[in-house]
Design a protein around this nucleic acid. Structure first.
Lengths: 248, 248
DNA sequence: ATAAGCTATTACGTAACGTCATAGTCAATA
DNA sequence: TATTGACTATGACGTTACGTAATAGCTTAT
């Protein structure tokens, strides 16, 4: 498929396709003879994903990260997009309600409070963006991965052993109350361990975010729970409590 | 109400309020002592209108023109916004359907054509923007008004008399078929008259648009029909036919 | 009286394209 | 075969609707 055909089919402009190519979001193959862009079936599937995420209000840079993420999963993506669209549908229904009431209010049939007059307008918090980040990549963790990739095999081994020991210790206290002194002292140690070994200064919030990921990202959950059943749950709670206490 | 309170209530940022003030879209009164912006109840109603139109995808410049238009009407505005929101709701439902089918398609339960895969994405034609233009102001007519405003009283009087005569002549043939030779010859004369006297070169399409306005904008309808009942209907039809013939 | 939290203006930055300008390519037609 | 019209490419600047930051004044609570 050439550019014009894709544009017609999807309703986006050829310029947009050029743009997506320029920023590396969707780079189709080229006709060797004349350099024309050729969109394959796979390109079209990727474009569908891009447009769905765009519809969900994701910036193109994040869409790119998501699609490139090793843990990206189309089924999960569809579910997330569905959640957003359902939420958006509700928001529009709220606005329609606000609109109908405003019409009545104008006629003098009812009176509306100021709050009511603006029902449905606020779209500032896009929780789906954060959910996506949790599912397929957290910036802090991503950056850490880059650092880890730059390490030598020996260094990696050393760090891995350190982590292994840390998690073994943590597993031993996983029956404690996450808010207990024992647990929180372990969290302090863990926090320091992270900051020493991961080439990145975690803020307490980011630390708490990693804990969340232990239970929302199944890849992590499995790995963590190898040290002991329910460890991920315990850590998520304890890490969040620790983070909250640090920021107060 | 001060800026922060408005921001909290509506979900928009203080910067946005500043921006709307800077471009003259929403200019609240000021506290004489310290220059702080003070938003009145009327300002809030205007802001509600702005946000509704923004939600409908209207650019801020157009929103400004609409709200300043002498023929602007809140009740009609609410109806237009309602139409848009209902349309948007349908679009989202289409996308949700596309999404559900895509999930099934991924599982191999069904197959989808490329066209199906992109159902709901195209939002390029916003007919509501055009409807608004028809209801509350046409660029060509607006510009003509500016020209007319620059004329001397004598010139105005002369043009007014010319228009009066033109419409009287037109009223005389309003029983004819709008496509008839008589009617179309009159349209040619009318078209030339417009271009001579309004300081603006009407394209045939714009000319046809004016005709449409004779029946969609009640202010025009009333004035036109003073020359003879049903003249606006006749002109709208005849002008459109003339415009279509010119562009072919 | 000093900090915390509001306000103002000015100014530069940004995202996601739109809109040219210029030039090469391809298919159909005179 | 030459030309025309519709497509393609790249490059560069323009646009909308704000975000973000800098600087400075005001106001209220401790």
């Amino acid at each position: 498929m050439n550019a014009k055909e894709v544009a017609k089919l999807t309703g986006i402009s050829v310029r947009t396709l050029h743009h997506y190519d320029a920023i590396g979001l969707l780079c189709p193959g080229r006709n060797k003879e004349n350099g024309y862009r050729q969109y394959s079936e796979e390109d079209m599937d990727q474009l569908q994903q891009i447009l769905f995420f765009r519809e969900c209000g994701f910036p193109l840079t994040k869409i790119q990260k998501l699609l490139n993420s090793s843990s990206f999963n189309r089924a999960e993506a569809f579910q997330l997009q569905k959640k957003y669209l359902l939420h958006e549908k509700k928001r529009i229904e709220t606005m329609l309600d606000t609109l109908n009431r405003s019409i009545q209010s104008m006629k003098g049939e009812i009176t509306m409070s100021l709050t009511e007059k603006f029902g449905g307008f606020d779209m500032n918090n896009n929780p789906y963006e954060e959910e996506a980040r949790r599912l397929w990549g957290d910036e802090t963790v991503d950056r850490s991965n880059a650092y880890v990739a730059s390490l030598s095999a020996e260094e990696k081994d050393s760090i891995a052993k350190g982590m292994d020991q840390l998690f073994t210790e943590l597993a031993a206290i996983r029956q404690e109350n996450p808010a207990s002194e024992t647990a929180q002292k372990a969290m302090a140690k863990m926090y320091q361990h992270f900051n020493k070994n991961f080439g990145y200064q975690y803020t307490p919030e980011a630390f708490g975010g990693v804990g969340q990921m232990y239970i929302t990202d199944t890849r992590f959950t499995e790995n963590v729970d190898k040290y002991g059943a329910g460890l991920s749950q315990f850590l998520a709670a304890a890490m969040k409590i620790y983070a909250d206490n640090q920021t107060k």
